[in-house]
Design a protein around this nucleic acid. Structure first.
Lengths: 141, 141
DNA sequence: TTGCGTGCAAAGGTTTTGCATGGCA
DNA sequence: TGCCATGCAAAACCTTTGCACGCAA
């Protein structure tokens, strides 16, 4: 939501590439730093945090927070403007940590409801449903 | 959850009383400490955190984690196995950063839907809807 | 008496910030 | 050239933990 200019720096490109290549999973800032360090292309952690946060602002990345004591996870969700994947919702399992993508039209009605009844414009890209997935629920309580 | 014995200490009673009296809003651990300090009945912060967490385990309090950098919020939801009827949903405005909590029955159907159609057990306590609130949307872009 | 609760201080770990320098536009 | 990005280290922040003592049951 910020309208700052986007500088195309070497560091940004490296981060973008890495996040894109790992779009299937959720990456923590520490993991990024580790990878870069192991790769010889070390980037200051402050830059990593700043760029990651910036990309979240731009809608390129999603940020997931489980709780205050575990590091936040980032996930690549697309560039080129706002690639609104139609109603792509995310569910995060609190047990196995798995991130589940689901496309469901019915869930779109939530946005409409929030808008009409509560005057709240939902941002589905950034909203994450937390809970317990089928597998973990089936196993043990 | 946990099945530890519940000791009835002076500190616990004070905390319980305070949380009960402020059940309408969200209280942070720091707010509790501030209040107690201002009141002369200071309790060690470690105890505050430990008791609060314990009460969450017991189902007396709800704990809300918005993101990793803001302190967690606690809310009194009832004792005596008094299961709270309506889950509390949270909306966080990405512009003004305001946290809006709403009790809405219709939104509860989301949980049911996720459960039935996707096998996902929603945890309303930890789920936050991101978007733009009425004020910010109405005002300026 | 037993074992949990408490309090203090210090540690823990993630994320942010200050400031000087470097690089994109 | 102007402004933003970077990097390093230190700070900030919330929360947890170690340990000795106190207190409920």
């Amino acid at each position: 939501m910020t309208s700052r200019p986007i500088y195309k720096t070497k560091q940004r490109e490296i981060l973008l590439k890495y996040m894109k290549e790992n779009s299937s999973g959720h990456i923590t800032a520490a993991q990024v730093c580790d990878y870069l360090r192991a790769n010889g292309t070390s980037i200051g952690q402050a830059t990593v945090y700043r760029q990651l946060e910036k990309m979240v602002d731009e809608g390129i990345l999603n940020k997931y927070v489980i709780d205050g004591n575990t590091p936040a996870c980032f996930e690549y969700v697309g560039e080129n403007g706002h690639v609104h994947e139609h109603a792509c919702f995310h569910c995060k399992c609190e047990k196995c940590g798995r991130l589940i993508h689901m496309h469901c039209e019915e869930l779109e009605s939530i946005a409409g409801h929030l808008q009409k009844e509560h005057g709240f414009t939902l941002d589905p890209l950034r909203t994450v449903f937390y809970g317990v997935c089928e597998t973990c629920a089936g196993g043990l309580k």
